[in-house]
Structure formats: C-alpha cells, structure tokens
Design a protein around this nucleic acid. Structure first.
Lengths: 149, 149
DNA sequence: ACATTAAATGATAATGATTATCAATATCAT
DNA sequence: ATGATATTGATAATCATTATCATTTAATGT
C-alpha cells in the first residue's frame, strides 16, 4: 500500500510535479480496486472518498499513474480505455472470447522469455508488453457452428 | 484480389446482407491499401473511387470487414482505431518504441506455437491474436538516461 | 510562519471518433 | 417487375477525452 504511494511521490518529485490531495485520492481508489477499470470506474470509486473530485483530474492522474509505471492500459477494443495494476501484480496475458466476452488471464513463461529475446534482438529496453489471444470459447464455438447450418 | 471480394460476398449472403456498390468501393479501397489505416484514411481512399461515399458507410463496412475476417484492428493506444489486412497477409507482431513511436514488425514462430498451445489448453478456437511489445529503442534509451541526470 | 512561484483543480467548453436516426434509395428473391 | 427489407448519406447525438481558464493549492526559499 504505502510503497506505491512512495513510488508515486518520487515520480512526481523527479518530474517537478506536486503531490496533491486529489492525486492521493485517485491513487488510493486505484490501489483499492482490482481488475480492469476505466476512468469512469475510477472516478466513481474516488468520489466515494472525496465527492468533490473532478472528472478531469481522474483522467490526468490516470495518465500519470501509467507514466509512473503503476498502471498500464489493458487493451480492450470496445468502449473506454481501461487500466490495470502493474506494481506487485504478477504479469498476465489475456485470452478473450469474441463470442461472449469471457476473459481468461494466463501466464506462459516461455512466451515471456521469447519476448525478452526479441527486445534484445532489436536493442530495445523493455517497458511492457501486451498479449491478447482472441477466439471462441467452447460454448460459443458450438453455438456458432449451429448458426451456420 | 477477387478472392477477397468473393469471401466478402459469401459472408454477406450468409448473414442476409446485401452486396452494394458502396461496400464494394470500401472493399476495393481497403484491398489497395497497406499498413494500418483508420476509418478516416479509408474514407479518403474510398472517396477517390466514389466521391459521394458517406463517412458512416465506411465505419459500418469496416466493421463488417472485420467480422468477415478480412480486416482486424491493429491495437494502437492513441488516436482512432486502425485496421489492417488479415487475409493472405502473413501475421506479424509489433515492437513499438514508446519514445519515438518507431514501429518494428516481427514474427517469432516459437511464440506463435506457444499461443496455439494456450488456445488448446482452454478449449478455444483461435480467431486471432495480437502481441505488442513496448520499450525504448536504443536511441531513445540514450536520450532518456541523459534526461535523468 | 509567510510570500512567491508554478502547478493543480474543478467546471465547462471543445474536440475527435463513433454511433443512432431517418427519409430516400438500392438490392435481392420471387 | 414487384415487394420486402437492407442500405445509403446527411445529420444529429453520444461517448470518451482533452483544452481552457479563473481560482486554489502545494513546494520552495526567506
């Protein structure tokens, strides 16, 4: 809990930015949450702490959190952008059903390894990666086949 | 060239939709293009074929193309959604520099293989995947380190 | 503590991308 | 050709995000 706050403070200081109560509120709301959340979600959560909080501040702070490496956006094709935790949250990739939207999180060390090879190959310093597999889950595949006939 | 058109026609027929000249125009424009293109890009290209074409039609048709499996969206975090070719275009993954935006396309058979294992493991029928590695290219990493001091 | 300076805030307007509406038109099966 | 229905382009509407701006707030130096 406190560790992330410290990281955020350090990040802000290095950038010549200020730690404000509004930013603290947003950070708290973010840390208490789980899963993929949009700016709107986070605004709602943060307003439960400070009802006077402005919407724009959430957007702004969310960007800072991402830049600070505490949040990253979880690539979703529809709707608003969604963020997820990075710090002290084990990395996972996504398997999503294009039929029903079911989302499975998985982790495949071999893939992670291969990715690092690629970063090295192109002389990149890794900052993140995102792997999204899309397909039909067993149930939806069944339904889909029936529709075809 | 013609093959994609046939596929699209079949797709439309199966869905009870109609092949119209507007859709043909959009498809032609899409097939002639390369790379990642937004709805706006495609509208511009399609208008060179038929200046009277409406913007909404491009959005609508692009969705159909994606649904038909001819296009898929190339996940980009900023700006409008962008689509890329699927059919008869070899799959590639993306390595993007968060500093300068440089985009490298690569292909790593081992990763592809591992992905198929995951689909199998969860009983999914694969329809697509997207892998995006993000980092700093050598040049930007250098600049970045200097800034810190 | 206090003043100073620059950044941050919330409200609101503005933008950009996408989607909904709708009357007129075009397509397909018959 | 005819009729049923999908499609069109124009426009308005919506959704997410960003810009603007007067006021407030935090960090720094005294």
């Amino acid at each position: 809990m406190k560790e992330e706050q410290r990281l955020f403070e350090i990040y802000l200081r290095n950038k010549g930015l200020k730690m404000t109560s509004a930013r603290e509120t947003v950070l708290q709301a973010f840390l208490r949450s789980e899963g993929h959340l949009s700016a709107e979600d986070l605004l709602a959560a943060a307003k439960r702490i400070d009802p006077g909080l402005g919407q724009a501040t959430v957007f702004r702070t969310l960007k800072l959190l991402a830049d600070a490496g505490l949040a990253q956006d979880a690539c979703k094709d529809e709707g608003p952008r969604r963020y997820e935790h990075v710090y002290k949250h084990s990395h996972h990739d996504h398997l999503v059903c294009v039929g029903c939207g079911r989302l499975i999180e998985f982790c495949h060390p071999q893939i992670e390894k291969a990715q690092n090879e690629i970063f090295k190959e192109f002389g990149f310093r890794a900052t993140g990666h995102r792997l999204e597999l899309r397909g039909l889950c067993a149930d939806c595949a069944k339904t889909f086949d029936l529709e075809k006939e």
